[in-house]
Design a protein around this nucleic acid. Sequence first.
DNA 1: TCGTCTTACGAGAAGCGTAAGAATT
DNA 2: AATTCTTACGCTTCTCGTAAGACGA
Lengths: 295, 295
Amino acid sequence: MIPTPAISDTDRMDPHLLRTFLTVVERSSFSTAAEHLGYTQSAVSQQIATLEADLGLQLLLRRPVEPTEAGRRLMEHAGPLLLRHDAARADVLRTAAAPAHRLTLAVSPLALTPAVATRLARARAEHPRLHLEVRACERREVITRIATGRADLGLTDGIAAPGDPLRLPDSGPLTTIGVSEEPLVVALPAGHPLSARTGLRLADLADAVWVQTPLCPLGRLRELAGEGFRAGLAYHGDNTRALLHLVAAGHGLTLLPASTAPGVPLTAPRVGHRVELVHATLPPGPATRLADALT
Amino acid sequence: MIPTPAISDTDRMDPHLLRTFLTVVERSSFSTAAEHLGYTQSAVSQQIATLEADLGLQLLLRRPVEPTEAGRRLMEHAGPLLLRHDAARADVLRTAAAPAHRLTLAVSPLALTPAVATRLARARAEHPRLHLEVRACERREVITRIATGRADLGLTDGIAAPGDPLRLPDSGPLTTIGVSEEPLVVALPAGHPLSARTGLRLADLADAVWVQTPLCPLGRLRELAGEGFRAGLAYHGDNTRALLHLVAAGHGLTLLPASTAPGVPLTAPRVGHRVELVHATLPPGPATRLADALT
DNA sequence: TCGTCTTACGAGAAGCGTAAGAATT
DNA sequence: AATTCTTACGCTTCTCGTAAGACGA
């Protein structure tokens, strides 16, 4: 057990220190982080020193800059903490914001499936006066944008067992509603041993080599189906066509929503592609109406 | 949408301001909060003013002190945020803590069922040199104690559909393992109309009047079974015998684990009582061994 | 008038930038 | 020698406490 003083130590470890720490670790550099944050190198150095003194632990190794064990632990907390922090701020400010007639919808790369696009068209038809702005972004950024008020609505997608909700990062009370589900298909190169199989099992998939890409995160597959899913080439873009080319060339397998990978016949067992609508507590007005229409 | 500056506004709204705000709202008083936190009334006043100026919103009405709409919104965020904050700190500090041979186990009032107590005895028998200290506390405090390092292990209980995990407040990465499940029984006074029923349905329960008590939170029942569950008398203690006396006297119904309410024959449909073991990432040592033995 | 919150003001601390100093490559 | 982090030092800003003021009950 860790001894704790009367009420709480809490009142150190300020957000700006955590943000600086996070930036330093991400960039592996005090000076670059300082530039990025608008501080001097000196200030960053002092902030890290304050943090380390406060906790009584070394958080970073210098030259090269790299987190220690304790630093890695703090890393895991700092991100979510700052997200919740920004989310709280945005949520409070939302109470005072005037209902806008221009709505921003953040969408992750694979969220705009044909079914979802159709639904969106129908919803817009019901509210013709509404200016809707769609902004594509990374999957995790959808949540961030909603939480921090940089988008009013969001569409995220992910892999889940049919009927199950997605596991989204925690940023306070967000409403999520399932909008669409469809099968996932297994993309593999011509002549791959699995393409001959008829009864496909999860274990077969786990033994293969997979392209490592945010479009089909291997970590999530392991969560759902146990270990395995060896990582091959990493692809960091959001272009499914390019991804399929990589698969065809034998760099590894991947899973994609059936509608995104036409002509791929092999359905993945036990898992599907799910799209969810995400939003914070909406002010009554066009945002609410659009959200309702989408559901 | 809310306009956002370059990187982030985050670096205001410091933890200590949130803590002060929370305390002021809880106590509905600046002066009492100040005393409790070890500040002057003046300091608290200034802190609240800072917070309000930063957000550009009034958070509190004065005389009587009461949160505004925005204030209530901030309230909902402040608690969880501070919990995560303390949890992060404690988790980092744990990396450096020496493995202790005295373990503290926090338990909620209904967590120590006969089955769990037996299990605990067996686990202790496997590790005879271990000093174990059991600390009873409120249900939500179990999580707080674990997260902030004021306990090494915890046992919480709650109501859940059979097989489902409990819904615990978010305070970062905690490990939870189901330890025991048993039926819930419906305690009701002699001669109550429901006692004659044989096929009991949830809807019947929702129509009745219930004793409002942390031992059987009505909010949780509504989450699981829809609205209804009218609140009767409120009982704030943790004494199940006293609670059963209140039920017998007709103040309302309640649900209790079968082993806690001997002689009550009526099993609640669709929901059960579940006990979970909770802990943070444990240092290798006695804590880990005990946790394993409990599972 | 009493209790309670706000405001004014001064003392101390904290935080940042400049600039010089180490340490590593 | 160049780069990068740390330290010294001064300045500014912040924050708190004391004390006086305002506002309600």
